[in-house]
Design a protein around this nucleic acid. Structure first.
Lengths: 268, 268
DNA sequence: GTCATTCTTTCATTGTATGTAACTTACTTG
DNA sequence: CAAGTAAGTTACATACAATGAAAGAATGAC
């Protein structure tokens, strides 16, 4: 009952009141900024971008560097190698990811399509697992890529039952992140979203050209969904009907995944 | 000139005097502990393992969770999906990793062997890039895996010129991490290390059975080496001589890599 | 060589991270 | 099913650690 407003899932708002653990929050912002920059950054760049003083930024970078989360060469800082074992740990040990693989595998072989698992992170989603069927996609979408919630079946189903207010924020965030162009509006988003109660989302030529997909949310013990699974196909290898035919399978898979989870989480 | 003793590369000592940024350092320890555990952990487990009070641990976890670095389901915490984009960012943007790929590619096609790049992280090394030649390895060694410094050519060359004192710590750490068994000694390590001035390391059947490799360090503007590149082959597809024949190529590649780096780092 | 910028260190002050203790919840055991 | 125990959470006062201003080095530009 005592929910901090933003605890939905991931990525604290930039401007949020950092009442608790200020130094840690700031460190995470520096870390996030280093990712966003996509190239080595100088101390003063980071300090400016994060709105903190030079000494503070420097101290944060030193600690992160001690743990390998950041690397320094001369005057420029970048993400460090310690993120690799962390990512491995996630992919190999996360109960949801691990449980999903055999299920996606089965989906892929049953339908001949590409089966994927996505998770919501803040106002984006990430590809977390993927298994190809008989009709593999020609483009490759690497694990951990940041994708929009506003486009693509797997994104839309994650926000299908969000309140209007939140959809506005999602729209703004999608534009800010460069996923949608400036002309994108809440109305345009509504036009893309599935009917209330449909239980699945469909997209064609939406996020990626020449690709169509259907997706369902992974049921999530009460709260709003944070994961979705999808079936994807090149446009020429399927029709809306043939894809939609996979939805029941997809829903069954999502249900099994959710069940497995409830069990496995307690094993700690 | 003002080097903090441990700034060599990565992973602060656990018992180190945490004078600066205590909360951040502690947060990183919680994060590291979550990786080490390889399964969801309860709050009290983490607090005990990291030697901090429950409230402190809880506050840290909450912040990390806000940024997606940690996920919570019921009472158990685990590494969160935000590490995936971070790892992607590292692999796609790190100047060293990026620069290495065409060079490893060329090495692999010239020699027909598997060419790899490793980086040192604390008392371990990580595989960071790999390209297969004509004789691909049958086992697959995923990116970001923690490997010993004490075994395998690519590990040994990274510590070949460490002082005795540091070699002792490395030996102890390798045992503690489970890379070497309790009987492993500093003398055993010395027996494996290359002659002083050899400029390359060789291993056969050492870290992995049925595999042999040679490695050289990537020159590193003065300091001790933190990266190495190697050529690896299944035992039956090469001899010590045929592998060692690749060392000159390997050295040239390492030199080119170092040069590229000096240039690219300044582009920020 | 000189100037401007960026980085680093020092230091006093404030704020915040901290643990104790009380409280609540959730599991365990009889 | 009830009572007991352990784990998780909140509240709060204290002390310590995080902070920015400012001075001092070190770079890089001109």
């Amino acid at each position: 009952m005592t929910e901090t407003a933003k605890s939905t899932a991931g990525v604290a708002d930039e401007g949020a009141k950092a009442t608790n653990m200020r130094s840690l929050s700031r460190a995470m912002e520096v870390f996030a900024e280093l990712q966003r920059a996509e190239r080595p950054q100088r101390l003063s760049d980071l300090a400016r971008a994060c709105g903190m003083s030079l000494p503070t930024t420097l101290r944060i970078l030193r600690v992160l560097q001690d743990f390998g989360m950041v690397t320094q060469t001369d005057k420029s800082y970048r993400i460090g190698p310690a993120v690799l074992p962390a990512a491995r740990s996630y992919l190999e040990n996360d109960p949801l990811v691990v449980a999903s693989r055999p299920i996606l595998q089965q989906l892929a072989s049953q339908t001949g399509l590409t089966a994927s698992l996505y998770t919501r992170l803040g106002y984006e989603r990430l590809l977390v697992a993927r298994l190809d069927g008989a009709a593999p996609l020609r483009y490759d979408l690497p694990l951990g890529k940041r994708l929009p919630l506003t486009a693509g079946a797997a994104g839309k189903i994650l926000i299908a039952s969000e309140p209007e207010e939140e959809l506005e924020r999602i729209t703004a965030a999608a534009i800010a992140a460069g996923h949608e162009d400036r002309a994108f509006t809440l109305e345009a988003l509504h036009a893309r979203l599935p009917e209330a109660g449909a239980g699945y989302a469909y997209s064609a030529d939406e996020r990626a050209t020449g690709v169509m997909s259907v997706a369902v949310a992974v049921p999530n013990r009460g709260g709003r969904p944070t994961e979705s699974i999808s079936l994807t196909s090149p446009m020429e290898a399927a029709t809306e009907d043939s894809l939609t035919a996979g939805v029941p399978e997809l829903k069954r898979a999502a249900g099994r995944l959710a069940e497995l989870l409830v069990g496995s989480v307690y094993q700690a």
